[in-house]
Every structure is written in structure tokens, then in C-alpha cells.
Design a protein around this nucleic acid. Structure first.
Lengths: 172, 172
DNA sequence: TATTGTTATACTCTATAACTATA
DNA sequence: TATAGTTATAGAGTATAACAATA
């Protein structure tokens, strides 16, 4: 009972192509990662922020917002969470007292080790069906696509407006 | 300035591994797809529902909810949208008048052709950096992971509770 | 009493806009 | 007047729970 628009469903037990598999696996990987870091009391966005601050301490919230492609007010919320948990400190910069220089607390520095362990376990879990050479092949192919699609290394588009946020025009 | 928890950032311009690339590309692919089908007045969830109904017409809302791993009340909303657009019909089943047998309207049948075209273009776009053999390789590798991770063919986990919906315990 | 679908409600995520302090 | 950050507010997406009709 193959509908005309369907690409010979019978021949392919898993009908959809690379794009669908990427979407499916991406959501799966994100969800599993969220579960794992959830045990540390963190969310995936938290991790990204911590990493960015660790990489260049003293950054302003505006600069984070710009790099992530989100609105500054969102960074306020995100940093508030980390601040409340005692993981990041907002230090008023003496030169320009308008902006907040962001720094990790000692506890956060310690946490980064945990996070790295969790991320490693996650990577191994996701790749568990593949041998070493397949793993490299895959990383290469994915890297090619990421470059071609113009994705910034290390910036998860999940920070930006999510997929179906914008309701399409209902007139059709 | 490589922090101790960082996997030699300098050596790898794109530091993260397969898991991160999957998450990143998955979100990207989903977003691009949403843009494309948005021009047809649809969202990615809509597409999935239409496909499931087209594949087995007469299904009940409960059965969809079960397959998608979502709560029945959500299917109500989703089907409401499609109903309002004149794409799906709820027919009271004569045997058990409690459930709604779902069917595509003729207009929806026609739309499926459009959708198929859009999905094809999307697939080509996502794979545009790869040659035919790389494309096959990639599909195979992704399929291996999907199987290993126990993902149901054709069911996007995005239907379920999204990544950071559940705020982790704030005590830590 | 159990099941299908629905409505009412609440919570989270996120953006927009108005506002404060500083420059 | 312009900029960094904040607060107030609103909208979309989704779950939970109470409810109606049917079995």
C-alpha cells in the first residue's frame, strides 16, 4: 500500500534519508546529554555558557549574546541560574562600570572536570555501535556538512529560535 | 590558554566530537526543514502526523499518541490545526463511536506531493557537500547509531519532552 | 468501571519592549 | 544620545488533571 508520494517504503525499512536521521539523532543526542548533565544540576545551555566563560574569562553578557545569536535578556536569565548556583560571578568592570565581567567560581572550575567526564561518556555512548575507523569517518563527514552549512564551531543552534517557534502564516 | 578539562582545543579547530556535531547538525537540519515546510503553512510535527495518517488511514488519536510517545491531549491540538486547515477529517467510527478515525482530505493528498518535493530539496541541500558515495556512507553510519540507540524508524524524538524542559533539581 | 477525546490550567522557554545606570 | 544590563510582559509549546460521551 505504497502511496504515490512515498519513496518506495517497502525497500527501505528506515525510509528517511540523511537529513531526517540527523534531525532524529540530534534530538536524541541532545536529550541524552541533558539527562546526563541534569545529574550535575545543569542544562545543556548552562554547559555551553560555562565553556565560553572558561575559555575567555571576563567576557561581557552582550558579547555572549552576540556569539550565541540570542537576545541579551536571555543571557540575563541563563547567567542568573548559574549565579544562583554559585558557579559564575558578575564583577563590575572598573573601566566601564556598565558591563559585567563574567568569571567562573572555584567550584565551577572543579565542576568542569565532572562535565568533561560526562561529555566523554556521552560521546562513547553515542558512538558505541561504531569501531574507531567508522567513528573517524563519521566525524569527518559531519564536519564537511557543518562547514558547508556555515555552522560555527561549538555553537549549538539550539540557542537560537527553535524549529517550530514561528507559526507559519495560517492562510495557505 | 587551554584549561585542564579541555581536550587540546588548539589541535582541533572544531573541538567537539560526534555527539556534539549530531546535536548541532540535527538542530540545524530541523530548523531549515521548518523554514521550508513553513512555506506550505506547515510545521515539522504536522508533516509527521500527515505521513502517519497517510500511511494508515483511519487511525485513532490514541494510537498516534502512543506511537509518538506524547500525551493524547497534545494530539488533539496537533490534529485541531490540521483540521482547521482542511487537511484531515475526523470521522466518528460506527463500531466504536468513541474514537475518531483520521483521514486525509483530497487537498492533503495533493499536498503530500509538495511535501515530498520540499523534503527532497532539503535532503539535497543538507548533503550538498558530499558526493554520492559519501552520502551513502553517512546514511549507513547514522543508521547504525540509530539502531544501536533504539530509535524507532521515522519517529522524531522531538515529539517527546524536549531537551531542557525539565529543570534539574536546583539544590545541588 | 474503563476508554476516547476534550477542555481547563499551569509551567517553561524565549522574545519584545520599557526601564535603570553608566558613558 | 548610546550602551550594558535588567525587568515586565506576552506568546508558543507542552504536560497534568478534570470532564463528557460512549463502551
Amino acid at each position: 500500500m505504497t502511496a504515490p508520494w512515498q519513496p518506495t517504503d517497502g525497500e527501505h525499512p528506515r525510509p528517511r534519508g540523511v537529513a531526517f536521521l540527523l534531525a532524529q539523532l540530534g534530538a536524541h543526542a541532545t536529550g541524552r546529554f541533558a539527562e546526563r548533565v541534569g545529574e550535575l544540576g545543569l542544562t545543556p545551555p548552562d554547559i555551553g555558557l560555562l565553556r565560553m566563560i572558561a575559555t575567555s574569562p571576563g567576557r561581557s553578557q552582550q558579547s555572549l549574546a552576540a556569539d550565541l545569536g540570542v537576545v541579551p535578556s536571555r543571557v540575563v536569565t541563563l547567567i542568573d541560574n548559574l549565579d544562583r548556583k554559585g558557579l559564575v560571578e558578575r564583577r563590575r568592570s572598573p573601566e566601564d562600570r556598565r558591563n559585567h565581567a563574567l568569571h567562573l567560581t572555584p567550584e565551577a572550575e572543579r565542576l568542569m572536570g565532572e562535565i568533561w567526564r560526562v561529555a566523554s561518556a556521552h560521546e562513547d555512548d553515542i558512538c558505541s555501535g561504531l569501531d574507531e575507523s567508522q567513528r573517524e569517518q563519521l566525524a569527518t563527514l559531519l564536519g564537511l556538512i557543518a562547514d558547508r552549512q556555515g555552522l560555527t564551531a561549538g555553537v549549538h543552534p539550539g540557542y537560537r529560535r527553535p524549529a517550530h517557534a514561528r507559526r507559519p502564516d495560517t492562510s495557505r
